[in-house]
Write a protein that binds this DNA or RNA. Structure first.
Lengths: 201, 201
DNA sequence: CTTATTGTTTTCATCGGTTGAAATTTTGCA
DNA sequence: TGCAAAATTTCAACCGATGAAAACAATAAG
């Protein structure tokens, strides 16, 4: 399970991620070629594709982890907690978690975020990642509140919350310098959507 | 302005669209090559790119038109109309317009919709198109209600509405057979988001 | 320690989307 | 009819992605 083989693979994976992110930040996403990324990690170009499905995939290396975290959070609601409260807590936890992460030598949460929001290809990929996440969360929420929320309502709630936050953050990106300011915009937008949801019951 | 040149270009454009859509529906998006599309429209492969920026672009040939329509709708609000009412009308008009369009010989609104929702590449593209639309609409709404809505609030409102509709429609796609049922789901999700917005003021 | 087995990486060939540049054809107009 | 501008074609090249077989490294068995 933790043989040499396994450890080596993890090392290669990390090397690829760091090589890629570093190059993307330095010279831009489109300008970086797969050959360069692979060279930076000391593997052949072909090997990249046994670790990641595509060039943009490497930027979203921790998506699964985050998704599982979010789902498990929605799956176990404390009794008496309304869907709106639960979703509010989800947003809070996610923002806190994002700020805390520092697993990679190279990585800086803010640099990666700006990279994603800046490069069109990555922004597009982020939209689909976020979309898939929402779909999964809506289903989980529907199961958690099986008696109270239809799938349509659960989807509408999750979609409204994420849609609100997403658009507000981007619309205000020019005015927000620090990560803190961005998180603040996110919280305000979440409040708009959540206040609406609470008024429904 | 309407010389032979212009008319010929329009004809070529339409030929490309029809050739592409037909092939996509017949054999799938990934399976269709640009060479085939071009051949179907009797032009060289290279010429395709002076009409459309990419293979997926051709499927969204009417995006600009729709966007302008939506923006102009949001730009002139009748006095006394709340943002929520205006957005509600926007959704209604958009759904009606979608059902009514039949400009192309080949095209069938439902086939195209299913194509987009089915093929991953097109679904991804749709997400970014929709996203850009929302951004533009949020700005327009903010300008229309300059005194009442901050940019964050306008973005939150538009994002919540579109996010709700989008996710609800997709989450329920399996259960919705006809276009009519899809539109119905959309309306119900819109009501969720709008009811929330109205309760704010 | 050697060998058989299995998993991983490399090499090689190929395909399709996309782009730039130069050559060619078509159209608008004097 | 002939010239200038615009559009199209041809050609070459780049890059991301994929399949297949060869080469290599790690593990387990004898």
């Amino acid at each position: 399970m933790v043989g040499l083989r396994e450890r080596k693979k993890q090392r290669t994976r990390r090397a690829l991620i760091e090589s890629a992110l570093q190059l993307f930040v330095e010279k831009g996403f489109e300008e970086t070629t797969l050959a360069e990324i692979a060279a930076g990690a000391d593997v052949s170009t072909r090997t990249f594709f046994s670790y990641f499905a595509s060039k943009d995939d490497v930027v979203f290396y921790d998506t699964n982890e985050r998704m599982e975290l979010a789902k498990s959070m929605l799956a176990r609601a404390e009794p008496g907690m309304s869907p709106a409260d639960l979703l509010a807590r989800l947003i809070d936890n996610s923002l806190a978690w994002s700020s805390a992460q520092e697993e990679l030598t190279f990585e800086d949460a803010e640099l990666r975020l700006r990279l994603i929001l800046t490069e069109p290809t990555l922004q597009a990929r982020a939209l689909t990642v976020l979309f898939d996440t929402q779909l999964a969360l809506a289903r989980t929420l529907h199961e958690t509140y099986a008696d109270e929320l239809s799938l349509i309502e659960a989807a509408a709630a999750v979609g409204a919350l994420f849609g609100s936050v997403k658009l507000a953050v981007i619309a205000n990106l020019e005015h927000n310098r620090s990560l803190e300011e961005i998180w603040d915009t996110a919280r305000r937008a979440a409040d708009v959507a959540l206040a609406g949801m609470r008024s429904l019951g």
